[in-house]
Design a protein around this nucleic acid. Structure first.
Length: 274
DNA sequence: ATTGAGACCTGTCGGC
DNA sequence: TGCCGACAGGTCTCAA
């Protein structure tokens, strides 16, 4: 479940039980996920207090009293389960098949990281050098740093498709395969259009860049609201996974198509997305 | 320097 | 029912 809105939901899930709490127990049940766990991972966490839990792109960041930051990425299949008080539902002794890490917090919460595909990452870096570690990630889409101008500039001169450019975390942080398709649909821009067409030859943003930057913000905001309201069940998307269904753009007679770009599925309407 | 393909893993689903 | 391939919301590495 992990693009920006879902990662942010996880942040809101973890913050109340981690912030101000100490790591009492840290159980690491294998030596690696996508990468090895850092040296002395448990010992560097135990006894430390979490100052805050934040998010940057698809990374979760726990700021520790040791002036290190615990950096977590969910990959494709990572998730956290929180059990208040000493493991009402799932304690460290009764670990499920893909429960790889268990944090016992002084707040009384047991936090279990589960990740079947193990594409996730946990790392520990000096907080001072956090910027350096995240320096390759582009602007936060919901910040004012990200706008038509910055988007056009990041796409200027690129030969790749618009869809592929949106998946590049250096262009904008936090978009994944679903919300890239959703944003392009809302902006009525074809995913196959060359990314370079967002900018004039001198790098100035075109109208398309304005529409796309705005659509990215709208799509992500809506998704975050939905996950907050949580009045939805697997509420589906406008185009993602809707091949052969009717386009939802008002008065558009088109049919959603599925194509493959850079090895990933893209869903779009060939009629209204130009 | 970019770009696309392949690799990393396990689970699920549809077709035969 | 069981097997098999295709596919999954992410990124990294590598060859062109």
């Amino acid at each position: 479940m992990p693009e920006l809105p879902e990662v942010d939901a996880v942040r809101r899930q973890l913050a109340p039980v981690m912030r101000g709490a100490r790591f009492d127990r840290v159980l690491v049940r294998r030596k690696d996920l996508r990468r090895p766990f850092p040296k002395h991972f448990s010992d560097r966490l135990k006894g430390r207090t979490v100052r805050n839990v934040t998010r940057r792109g698809k990374y979760l960041l726990a700021d520790l009293s040791s002036d290190e930051t615990l950096l977590m990425h969910l990959g494709m299949s990572g998730s956290f389960a929180v059990a208040r008080r000493h493991g009402s539902s799932r304690s460290s002794n009764s670990a499920g098949p893909h429960d790889h890490v268990v944090f016992g917090m002084s707040s009384g919460a047991t936090i279990t990281y589960n990740d079947p595909r193990r594409f996730g990452v946990m790392d520990l870096v000096p907080t001072r050098s956090l910027d350096h570690h995240l320096s390759r990630i582009g602007p936060e889409p919901l910040s004012s740093e990200f706008n038509a101008a910055s988007l056009a500039k990041a796409c200027a001169g690129r030969r790749t498709s618009l869809k592929a450019a949106l998946l590049d975390q250096r262009v904008v942080a936090g978009l994944g395969n679903i919300y890239a398709s959703e944003a392009l649909h809302l902006a009525r821009l074809s995913p196959r259009r060359p990314a370079s067409t967002l900018a004039t030859p001198s790098g100035e943003p075109r109208e398309s860049a304005r529409r796309l930057a705005a659509a990215i913000k709208t799509v992500l905001r809506r998704a975050i609201e939905r996950s907050t309201a949580r009045a939805y069940r697997t509420s589906r998307f406008r185009v993602y996974d809707r091949a052969e269904e009717g386009c939802q753009t008002p008065r558009c007679p088109g049919t959603i198509r599925r194509i493959t770009q850079a090895g990933r599925s893209t869903f779009y309407c060939p009629v209204c997305q130009k």
